[in-house]
């Protein structure tokens, strides 16, 4: 299945309006009503996406002055397709100077046999707060293959470029990757003053070189990972 969903938020002088809101199965964008000057859109994935063979794309644009929250209502299960066909997802973020986006896509669970490539590309002149949680397999399940890439820039300035490949048992358990944990959660804050580094046993917060803050936690389960991420962002 090929799908391209689009969402454009602009500021009309008094509040954030959704100038474009185009869902395309299996990506549904559901705006919430009565959210005041800020806009809130729920991201609803169909239960069986992405599936091997799917190419999903989501484009989010936020204009100057607009404040948009995009919040997933559930976790995403990355599932295998017939004959191991790979799947891809691309999320493009464009936040103008003076615009603000909170992007909370929910945990991504890489199920056995999946073969998925996920990419997040963002040109962030304004403010971005993104939280991502990666889960290697359902309880007791060996994960399939996932390559996840983040490319975040501010115009020509690179802010963060990272690629992580999971699904190689040797590397998954290694200290360099998830140090034997099943869940990694990250919070990325761009467009606000960088915060001083801080760390605990399984979480850390670090300042990016060109501005921005990245918090990371590792844990055996989602609840613990999110609690540790909370510690990292509030410490």
């Amino acid at each position: 299945m090929k799908a391209h969903a689009r969402l454009t938020a602009c500021f009309d002088g008094s509040r954030t309006v959704l100038r474009e809101l185009r869902s395309m199965a299996p990506l549904s964008l559901v705006p919430r009503r009565d959210t005041g000057p800020e806009a809130v859109v729920h991201l609803v994935n169909s239960a069986t996406a992405p599936l091997g063979g799917d190419n999903l794309r989501l484009t989010i644009q936020v204009g100057a002055g607009a404040v948009l929250h995009v919040v997933a209502v559930a976790a995403t299960l990355v599932l295998p397709g017939p004959h191991g066909t790979p799947s891809t997802s691309l999320v493009e973020l464009d936040v103008a100077d003076g615009g603000s986006l909170e992007y909370l896509p929910g945990p991504v669970i890489v199920t056995a046999g999946a073969n998925h490539t996920a990419e997040l590309r963002g040109d962030i002149a304004g403010h971005l707060h993104a939280r991502e949680t990666l889960v290697l397999g359902r309880d007791g399940e060996r994960p399939g293959r996932l390559t996840t890439t983040q490319h975040l820039t501010r115009g020509p300035v690179p802010l963060l470029r990272q690629t992580l490949t999971v699904g190689d048992p040797e590397l998954d358990a290694s200290i360099a990757h998830l140090a034997g944990h099943r869940v990694m959660a990250t919070a990325l804050m761009i467009g606000e003053a960088s915060r001083a580094p801080a760390s605990g046993r399984w979480w850390s917060r670090t300042a990016l070189a060109a501005g921005g803050t990245l918090a990371t936690s590792l844990a055996p389960d989602v609840v613990t990972a999110q609690a540790r991420l909370e510690a990292a962002t509030s410490a």
Binding site: I175, A176, H177, L178, A179, T186, A198, G200, W203, L218
Partner: peptide
């Protein structure tokens, strides 16, 4: 390419602290 090492990054921050 941009291979990441979240575990080593976390350890580096902890070591520095």
């Amino acid at each position: 390419p941009a291979p990441s090492s979240p575990g080593l990054d976390l350890f580096a921050e902890a070591h520095a602290a």
